[in-house]
Simulated scan of single mutants.
Amino acid sequence: MHDDSATTGERLATWLEGLGLADHLANAGLPSFERDLGGLVRWRDPGTGQPLTAEQLADLDRVLHQDGDDPAHAVPLALVQLRRRAQVRAALLASAWHTYASLAAVRGASENATRFAVHKAAERHALLVVAHDGGVLVPAFQLTDAGELRPELGAVLEPLLAARMDPWQVWSWLTQPAGLLGGDVPHELARDAAEVDVVRHAAVRLAERASAGS
């Protein structure tokens, strides 16, 4: 890179590092960068792996600053959303969940029988199952001590899963404070028999929004 492009590359890299967004460039399909031992920024084209030209850096600069009324202070919203999604997934993965094997142990059943039962329940929209790293996770919040679906959550899960919402989004909504419920956590509020219908109504509204936006 010549001097102008090197300056642009350094400015963009420092800006993204300050925003905590540098690690999400590749997942957004954008050029990414690394610093050499001397701290010099090296930007690479995601398709070819070749260094970015001055023109490509200028295009990237425009793309990253296109959101907002003031380009000088714009924040790349797509990267912010990717960072937020990664943070949410990390928090969910840090909570309790089961594999087929661990759920089988809780249920006192074989792994094959548990796998079959989980698949059938998921097909009926009666169990939240989340794909991850080539396998599946069964979030534990929805289960009884015996490893079966909590009865009060059946009517809550059904509209969300039937709407084909992203399972990660379903997991997140059910386990975090929800605006539709005045800041209460849906799966916890559903334990109250007097409130479970309110939770289901909120789930139906969320499912309708998801369907309308798909």
Rank of each mutant, 00 (worst) to 15 (best):
D3I: 14
S5M: 07
A6C: 10
T7V: 13
T7A: 14
R11E: 14
A13T: 01
A13F: 01
T14E: 15
L16V: 00
E17H: 07
L19F: 05
L21V: 06
L21A: 08
A22I: 00
H24G: 09
H24A: 06
L25S: 02
A26R: 15
S32Y: 05
D36F: 03
D36Q: 03
L37V: 09
G39S: 00
G39I: 00
R44Y: 05
R44P: 00
D45M: 03
G47D: 15
T48F: 04
Q50R: 15
Q50L: 15
P51E: 01
P51A: 02
L52E: 10
T53I: 12
A54K: 11
E55S: 13
Q56K: 09
L57V: 02
A58C: 14
D59C: 09
L60G: 01
D61V: 09
R62A: 15
V63A: 15
Q66A: 12
D70F: 12
D70V: 15
A72W: 14
H73E: 15
A74Q: 10
V75R: 15
L77N: 07
L79I: 15
Q81W: 14
L82K: 07
A86G: 06
A86T: 04
Q87W: 06
V88A: 05
A90Y: 02
L92N: 03
L93R: 09
L93N: 06
A96H: 11
A96Y: 06
W97L: 02
W97Q: 07
W97C: 06
W97A: 11
Y100E: 10
A101K: 10
S102Q: 07
L103Y: 05
A104D: 00
A105S: 12
V106R: 04
G108Q: 04
A109K: 06
S110P: 08
S110R: 10
A113H: 11
A113C: 08
A117D: 04
V118Y: 05
V118R: 03
H119T: 08
H119C: 07
H119I: 06
A121I: 01
A121C: 03
A121M: 07
A121K: 04
E123I: 00
V129R: 08
V129S: 09
V129M: 08
A131R: 14
A131L: 11
H132A: 07
D133E: 13
V136F: 11
P139A: 03
A140W: 01
Q142Y: 08
L143K: 01
G147T: 01
E148W: 14
P151I: 02
P151H: 04
P151E: 04
P151L: 02
E152S: 11
G154I: 00
G154Y: 00
A155V: 14
A155D: 14
L157S: 03
E158C: 03
P159C: 08
P159H: 08
L161A: 04
L161K: 00
A163H: 00
R164D: 12
P167C: 07
V170E: 07
S172G: 01
Q176W: 02
P177Y: 12
A178L: 04
L180P: 11
P186R: 13
P186W: 15
A190S: 13
R191C: 12
R191Y: 14
R191W: 11
R191S: 14
A193V: 14
E195F: 09
V196G: 10
D197C: 06
D197T: 12
V198N: 12
V198A: 15
V198C: 12
V199D: 07
R200N: 04
H201W: 12
A207L: 06
E208H: 14
R209T: 08
R209W: 09
S214E: 08
S214L: 10
S214M: 04
